[in-house]
């Protein structure tokens, strides 16, 4: 494309349907891929763990964004759904001796089913009522996990063995990185393509105007339940990955704070944007990790900082959410978009 081109023009349906249109996009994608591949070779063990957390968060955040960002159904039950995924896989593999892959697939299906069930209130409720209903599902699921002892082990931690894949025992963060990366990439591709299908378009129609969606033939009942199921499937995968990667499953990993963290990710990243989910997951995991690192480094000079670390993390977390919502409600994805536009149109403003 010539440097003076002022826009992207499609001359065939094929080019319009393509996921990427310009050479610059391919170049950026290649660059991003190179960085992602290079990360485990240059990162310190601490940052390698962080990278794995990010990968899992990407899968979960894409799942939540399908529901909240694309379908417009807020969910505060993310932590509970992650727990369903983690426990399903862990119990199948540990107690019943199923292969890990079967456990993970079962976790995805099980979480999708549970998500669809807890999505039923969405058929009658909108907005804040739905937020409160899903808040209740979060508490009810965690209650079940804590008290259904003969299945989940109750408040005791459930220990899972390290799985083997292609003859490699997945016992280091470095090996896990590639597995998690593959899952995150698959989730990204699936998420992006979902919104090029009728199913994804139906979700967006419900978000934009549910009555209008119904009028043009979208069955809102079916599609709302489907949105919960599809979204929870992603979340179930994230939960199962957490279980096998950390090898310890406890209910404390899946509290309301986790639900809020995931909501924060998609808000900071950008509601209704798959790439936004990725930016948000990276941002919300890297910033606390970085603050921890800085506090560790400054422990000598400023002992106050290290001591008050959890409080500072909490405050900064809240502040990030508030500032993003007030100044850039469409998140990092929108900021990135504006930066690209600025470069592309320079020296003109628009």
């Amino acid at each position: 494309m010539a440097a003076t081109a002022t826009g992207i023009y499609h001359r065939s349906y094929r080019s319009e349907l393509a996921l990427r249109h310009t050479q610059a996009e391919y170049a950026r994608l290649t660059l991003a891929a190179a960085v992602v591949v290079a990360v485990p070779f240059v990162a310190t063990p601490y940052w390698q763990t962080v990278a794995n957390q990010i990968g899992i968060a990407v899968v979960g955040a894409i799942g939540l964004n399908i529901l909240t960002g694309y379908t417009g159904q807020i969910s505060l039950g993310q932590g509970g759904f992650l727990a369903v995924g983690a426990y399903t896989s862990a119990i199948l593999v540990e107690r019943l001796g199923a292969p890990t892959l079967v456990g993970v697939v079962a976790a995805i299906l099980m979480t999708a089913a549970v998500g669809a069930f807890f999505g039923l209130p969405a058929l009658r409720l909108k907005g804040l009522y739905l937020a409160i209903a899903t808040l209740a599902s979060q508490f009810i699921i965690l209650y079940a996990v804590r008290n259904w002892e003969f299945v989940t082990g109750g408040v005791q931690a459930l220990v899972v063995g390290t799985p083997t894949l292609f003859g490699f025992e997945l016992n280091t963060d470095f090996r896990w990185y590639w597995v998690i990366l593959a899952c995150a990439a698959a989730a990204t591709v699936a998420g992006t393509n979902l919104f090029r299908t009728g199913l994804g378009r139906a979700f967006m129609a419900i978000r934009d105007q549910d009555i209008a969606a119904e009028a043009v033939g979208v069955n809102t009942v079916t599609y709302k339940v489907l949105a919960f199921a599809v979204s929870s499937g992603f979340v179930g995968l994230a939960g199962a990955l957490t279980a096998h990667w950390t090898t310890i499953v406890t209910w404390e990993r899946f509290t309301l704070d986790v639900s809020i963290l995931y909501l924060a990710m998609i808000i900071v990243g950008g509601l209704g944007s798959v790439s936004g989910s990725i930016y948000g997951a990276v941002f919300m995991i890297v910033v606390p990790a970085w603050i921890t690192q800085v506090a560790q480094d400054l422990r000598g000079q400023l002992s106050f900082l290290a001591r008050e670390l959890p409080a500072i993390q909490l405050g900064v977390f809240g502040l990030i959410i508030i500032l993003f919502l007030i100044f850039e409600p469409r998140g990092l994805a929108r900021i990135w978009h504006r930066m690209k536009d600025y470069v592309r149109l320079w020296p003109f403003r628009y």
Partner: peptide, 10 residues
């Protein structure tokens, strides 16, 4: 409502 709920959570 999603945004308003999140701002109070923050």
């Amino acid at each position: 409502p999603v945004a308003v709920i999140m701002v109070t959570i923050g």
